[in-house]
């Protein structure tokens, strides 16, 4: 039972189950502190979004997007989803920022002022945003034990790994073991995306050692492709 409790705690954002294991006074304090930090983070996220909308300098936008990702990673930590937080911090704030900066190096870093009317896009965003906010009213309460996601396969996974004394981090067990086939699909997605980007950016020619394609290579490529079509 203790193992099962620990497993639930480690598994994901089971705030309710974790709270049940702690004394009530401390739980109350922690919950209030979490709520306060969450409100600060969400306010900062909204402020950064507005700043991104107003900013015309692309360099500033990239840096702000990186800050946005870091704040989002902090939000994920408060939600006890540490794995997602790590991914968000390393991919969202790290690699994407670097790739976007590399892209800025190729283009201009000042956005041209918008000539067309913004009325229709504004209208569409407001309608879609309102629909999303309306949709959240149909979701179960935050952290609710009775939410459908906690009643489907999650109890089986937790019970199974508790019965077989599997490693405590159920996230890893679910990703690589219970749902190994899904993760194989995900790795294939990463592989396909990588190959696609490489094909688009390297354009099919082989990049030579010093990073410049030579004229010979280009001609060779042209002959190859014409031969292919004929």
């Amino acid at each position: 039972m203790i193992l099962a409790n620990k497993a639930v705690e480690n598994a994901a954002d089971h705030a309710v189950a974790a709270a049940a294991a702690n004394p009530p006074g401390i739980t109350k304090l922690t919950e209030n502190a979490e709520l306060f930090v969450m409100m600060v983070l969400l306010t900062l996220l909204a402020a950064i979004t507005l700043a991104i909308i107003r900013q015309r300098n692309m360099f500033g936008v990239v840096i702000l997007a990186g800050i946005y990702s870091f704040l989002m990673a902090s939000v994920m930590i408060i939600l006890d989803a540490v794995d997602v937080a790590m991914t968000e911090a390393s991919v969202g704030a790290g690699i994407s920022t670097v790739v976007l900066l590399a892209t800025l190096h190729l283009t201009q870093s000042i956005e041209y002022p918008q000539r067309r009317s913004v009325l229709i896009p504004f209208f569409i965003s407001v309608v879609v945003g309102a629909a999303l906010v309306w949709g959240t009213s149909g979701l179960p309460a935050f952290g609710a034990k009775t939410a459908p996601i906690h009643g489907h396969v999650a109890p089986t996974f937790i019970q199974y790994s508790a019965d077989h004394k599997m490693p405590p981090n159920i996230v890893t067990a679910v990703l690589a073991d219970f749902r190994g086939f899904d993760t194989l699909g995900e790795v294939t997605v990463v592989f396909t995306a990588g190959i696609g980007v490489l094909l688009l950016l390297q354009g099919g020619w082989r990049v030579t050692g010093n990073g410049r394609r030579s004229e010979d290579d280009d001609e060779q490529q042209g002959m190859d492709s014409s031969g292919g079509t004929a």
């Binding site: 190729l106 592989f191 990588g194 980007v197 490489l198 990049v207």
Partner: peptide
């Protein structure tokens, strides 16, 4: 291996574009 390779290859591809 796949994730690491993809990320580095993407970075190389972007960095190469900037040079030529």
């Amino acid at each position: 291996v796949t994730v690491c390779g993809t990320m580095i290859a993407m970075f190389y591809a972007f960095a190469e574009r900037g040079r030529s």
